Amino acid sequence: MPSLTPTHRHQPGTSHHAREGHLHPARKHVELIDVNGGGEGEQEAVKLGAFVDNSRRRAAKLSPERRAALDKLGMRW
């Protein structure tokens, strides 16, 4: 995942969940996020599918806060 600011860190997963109703993207899924906010301007591609897959594999190493944030989005462990 690109180095996102703290306010953008959960944006790809949140966007995907809001649009699709789940957080089960395909491994190769790429989510485009608006870097500047407001819906216009520069977009950045985030490999959301790879991030979710890697997070599942490393679940034991995630902080409780990060795991709770992913749980809130419906992460399937």
Rank of each mutant, 00 (worst) to 15 (best):
S63D: 08
R19E: 13
E44C: 11
A68I: 01
E40Y: 12
L70C: 07
R19M: 04
A59K: 07
S15T: 07
T14E: 12
K72M: 07
R67M: 07
R57S: 12
P25M: 04
R76T: 14
A18E: 14
R57L: 11
L62I: 04
H17L: 02
H29I: 00
E65H: 09
I33C: 08
G74W: 09
H22V: 02
L4S: 10
L62Y: 01
I33P: 12
R57H: 10
E20C: 03
A45C: 06
P6E: 09
S15E: 11
E40H: 14
E20S: 01
V46W: 05
P25H: 00
H16T: 03
G13V: 01
E65M: 00
R9D: 11
R9L: 14
E42N: 13
T7N: 12
P64I: 03
A68C: 04
H8P: 00
A60R: 09
H22C: 00
T14G: 00
T14A: 13
H17E: 04
T5W: 02
T5H: 11
T7H: 12
D71N: 14
G38Q: 05
G38A: 06
D71M: 06
V35P: 05
D71A: 14
R76W: 03
G38S: 13
G74H: 10
W77T: 05
A26S: 14
P12Q: 06
I33G: 08
H29Q: 08
R58C: 01
I33L: 03
K47N: 15
R76Y: 04
G41F: 03
R27W: 06
N36W: 02
G39K: 02
A60Q: 04
H16D: 05
E65W: 03
N54R: 11
E40R: 11
R56D: 00
N36K: 10
S55L: 08
L48H: 08
P64Y: 00
H8R: 15
S55C: 14
K28S: 15
A59V: 13
H10W: 15
K47T: 12
G37D: 08
K47L: 13
S15L: 15
G38W: 04
L32T: 11
L48S: 07
A26P: 05
A50M: 06
L70H: 06
P12W: 03
G41K: 04
I33S: 09
